[in-house]
Design a protein around this nucleic acid. Structure first.
Lengths: 349, 349
DNA sequence: CTGAAAGCGCTTACAG
DNA sequence: CTGAAAGCGCTTACAG
């Protein structure tokens, strides 16, 4: 028995389509069609092939299939930093959607800032590896956009709108405006704003739009909207929000409310306010934007965006674009005001 | 001019190694060697090839290279949920390390719990796609372990130790013990413990080891370590910590300190304590484990683990194992006690 | 130091 | 409904 076995050529790499074909007495072409549910295979033949493949434990080589078909069955996800809540959340829901559809998630980190400028996007790292691409919170300049197009795969932008491409996000300006109106309704007149980096090169950045939402609302209500009510940071982390709040309160001790461009900044603001011996929600109200999972624990009021849904929608859009190349779509999802003890009526000084 | 151009056969897929070979008047074998810095190519020839490849903008087809060589140059990362801080943090540092080494990161989410049991690991999704695998915070049963080994690639486990495999993590029991001793030093005698899921099937789970650390320390100091001082949850989120703390304080109002098995649970505990009108750090002290980025904003004292370093080490170990198959290694990294206003001396009742 | 050729394991017109 | 064969674009013994 062993003698017979040992005379067989045992292939290290496992069962190939050829082995299934021989065992079923059909051609590899027919096996290939049967396994992929393509038309043109007799029901009896198909059943036999499927059973044999199953019995042999045949798994098609993804790499060979890719080379032959030109499709990789994986989707690229480019984003600044997986360890940040927003990106992790989007990635998770997108990955789940891709997985269900039989696609792999290839994640690339492209840090926002290394020193003064962002690292540039190089499409060659992705070339030939993906069927579609999702880009999170990154704005591409013309040369990067050209790189992107040279990949010849559909692209979906999330959070930052890139003209001419698919987009999934929220109405950032209106969201910030609504938060601002809410604070005004509570009687606040001196409302500071913690912003992310804004610059002329990216007027579509969410951080710029949120700042506009604050600014335009303050103006409409004839309230102070001068620049010294704004403190901007490069990356919207809690620790940066903490530092920015200290500067803001040093400069403008008359502030009774702060609208932060992100929940994480708002958390840092809460910390800074407490350390000054002021009461959050009484002396100074704090409102965030995002709907961070930890906001309830912070007692933070916020404008929540449907983050998971954004990831899912982006993934669905990417998948749909693989099969039917259509016009770029824009999907804008609604945000929700979430109350919390971090905000209260303006103190009657 | 256009006439000449249009008579050329324009290949949609781009420049192939064949094109570079023809332009350089050498064989594709030589081009292949030159481009990969293999020995046996004359310096002049090599220079010419490199320049021509550069000029033509040649990018080797990763899929063809994989099929021919048997190496994919990508690494799988299996973990429960990218949107959770710990996993995002590890993924980010691991991805950065892989990228620098020229490897892609293929991320798979395998949810811990869907209903009562975890979804099972199926190696076939990964078969033929990766050169190595990193598994985060997942414990594999014998059948899953067999699946894993059938992939024939090196595997590194992070956070949960899997006997017989590479491992990167911390000393969970000692870390919890140290936190516990610190609280005891502050005069606390009734110390509750917020735990993750523990069960007999996984005695090596960090959550079990942390619980042991608490338990053994309480015993050594002849303090109450009974089960009703422990509240366990399935997933260690802030909201689960919030609920668990309510139950814990209802049952044991004599508690003056809580050791949470994760910072996120500790954050939920802080929220629950505040809502009862008790003062965190005065009436009840709270200590976490992990070193979450948002802990400082919470004023949370914690045992910090070097999370990014764990990801980097795991990635390095995975990369090293690809080239030299060695004995499974175990890397244990140190944790650090971080003070914060969430802990204080036991109240003198 | 270099090349001709087989081979990696699939898919896809094309022909029947 | 099915098959023979070319082709995807590389790498790798093997031979010189």
């Amino acid at each position: 028995m062993l003698g017979i076995g040992s005379t067989l050529i045992i292939r290290f790499m496992g069962i190939r389509i050829e082995d299934v074909a021989q065992a079923t007495h059909v051609s590899t072409a027919t096996v290939s069609r049967a396994l992929r549910n393509l038309p043109g295979v007799g029901p009896t033949t198909k059943k036999r092939i499927l059973e044999t493949a199953e019995a042999l434990g045949y798994i098609p080589s993804p790499t060979a299939a890719s080379l032959a078909s030109g499709h990789t069955h994986s989707i690229g996800l480019v984003q600044p930093d997986m360890s940040r809540w927003f990106f992790g959340k989007i990635l998770e829901s997108a990955e789940n959607t891709f997985r269900k559809a039989g696609y792999d998630a290839l994640v690339y980190s492209l840090p926002d800032y290394l020193g003064p400028v962002r690292q540039r996007f190089n499409a060659n790292v992705l070339r030939g590896k993906i069927d579609a691409l999702v880009v999170l919170s990154l704005f591409f300049d013309p040369s990067e956009e050209e790189q992107l197009r040279s990949l010849k795969v559909p692209v979906v932008f999330v959070s930052v709108e890139q003209p001419g491409f698919n987009y999934v996000g929220i109405n950032d300006e209106e969201t910030a405006a609504r938060a601002c109106r809410h604070l005004i309704t509570l009687g606040h007149k001196h409302i500071g704003h913690l912003s992310g980096q804004t610059n002329d090169k990216c007027p579509v950045a969410p951080t710029q739009r949120r700042r506009n939402g604050w600014h335009n609302t303050m103006q409409r209500f004839h309230l102070d909207s001068s620049d010294d009510l704004v403190e901007a940071v490069t990356i919207m982390t809690a620790s940066n929000g903490y530092i920015a709040t200290q500067r803001l309160l040093d400069r403008r001790p008359d502030i009774t409310a702060i609208l932060a461009s992100s929940d994480e900044m708002a958390m840092g603001a809460i910390q800074a306010i407490k350390e000054r011996g002021l009461r959050v929600g009484h002396d100074i109200s704090v409102m965030g934007i995002d709907g961070h999972d930890l906001s309830p624990s912070f007692g933070l009021a916020t404008m929540a965006q449907p983050v998971s849904q954004e990831g899912t929608k982006a993934a669905q859009l990417a998948l749909a674009s693989i099969t039917n190349q259509t016009e770029p779509k824009t999907i804008v999802l609604p945000t929700t005001l979430v109350e919390g003890p971090s905000i209260g009526p303006a103190p009657t000084s």
